[in-house]
Design a protein around this nucleic acid. Structure first.
Lengths: 187, 187
DNA sequence: GTCTATAGAGTGATAGAC
DNA sequence: GTCTATCACTCTATAGAC
């Protein structure tokens, strides 16, 4: 099935994101990208003169923007339910582990050399924002950072497990437990 | 330089493993494999007539064997220090997160279609063995499975974080916390 | 001669860049 | 669509051990 050409740049980027998520950076061939977006190679290079790397950069830009708006800013705003909202948001965003965290996947193998700085910044920002929110819940600064680290690692590992076992329930179970860890102050 | 056949193949597989770990399945080109192993294409296809896929299968075979011997069997043997030994083994094996878990990486993107069944079996076996060991520490069967799931996800997520931040200390900190979780019976 | 391991030119297909 | 580079892979040739 050939999709009709995606209209806006934003729309194209969303389709690109899913290709990279499923195939990785190396695995995402231009023909697969062309098929998924409904755009010919010429059109793709018109929108992204830098080729595949620029496409991935654009995807990472949109991921950054989404997390900043939907996760990091709410956490840092210290709203009382911000942490619960974060767990809801990531469960929905990662579709209980069916959908890969592209930044995590790039960190693991596909884009560490190309996107290393952005990958690092993404996780650092997440950790900072979550730690702030935990401090607002009564954690000491040091414990908050450690707990944030543990929660983010749990989410990333939950995606790996859910993909490995093809079982979203394992991701949801982990989220339940991580939610509890975010409430409880003592380890 | 001529190696004995058996030690030659084993040695080749260890080199192959590092190539797949660093580049993923798609990203590991035959020329990269040839360069890393020091073998020409002819030799590679002599040892692995099935090509790249057979090479990856051989690597997974060796990973399975290593974990069975060094991690899963000791856990299932219910030796009193088996869980601590597991944490030591994986910290060493994954080099505090510098070294990727190939099975986890394949689960995330690179080899899910090709190796899905093996990936699933690897994590199921790990979970079973660790849950057994936790039961021996006094956990109820249900809680043991959940806690095992949480620990394995924590390890996988710890590798992602360590790679992302280029920081082995974050992995080591996570292991410290997971060790404590394995001791404590109440969540 | 047979067996095992080696190398690497050469195959068609397909990659990404333009 | 057109380009060149590179892909996974095949094939032939060579070497030494037995």
């Amino acid at each position: 099935m050939t999709l009709r050409p995606a209209s806006g740049r934003t729309n194209v980027i969303a389709l690109l994101a899913e290709v990279f998520r499923e195939q990785g950076f190396e695995g995402a061939s231009l023909s697969a990208i062309s098929k998924a977006t409904g755009l010919g190679k010429g059109s793709l290079y018109h929108h992204f003169p830098g080729g595949k790397e620029e496409m991935a950069q654009a995807v990472l830009d949109e991921i950054d923007a989404w997390f900043e708006c939907e996760v990091f800013n709410p956490l840092a705003s210290l709203a009382p339910d911000a942490i619960d909202a974060m767990f809801n948001a990531v469960t929905d965003y990662f579709r209980s582990g069916r959908r890969v965290c592209l930044v995590g996947a790039f960190a693991l193998l596909d884009g560490r050399d190309r996107f290393g700085a952005r990958i690092c910044a993404y996780f650092r920002r997440w950790n900072e924002a979550l730690a702030q929110a935990l401090v607002a819940r009564g954690y000491g600064p040091r414990k908050a950072r450690l707990r944030a680290e543990e929660i983010i690692a749990g989410i990333q590992g939950g995606i790996v497990l859910a993909r490995a076992m093809n079982d979203t329930a394992s991701f949801d179970r982990l989220i339940v437990r991580l939610r509890r860890r975010a409430r409880r102050q003592t380890p």
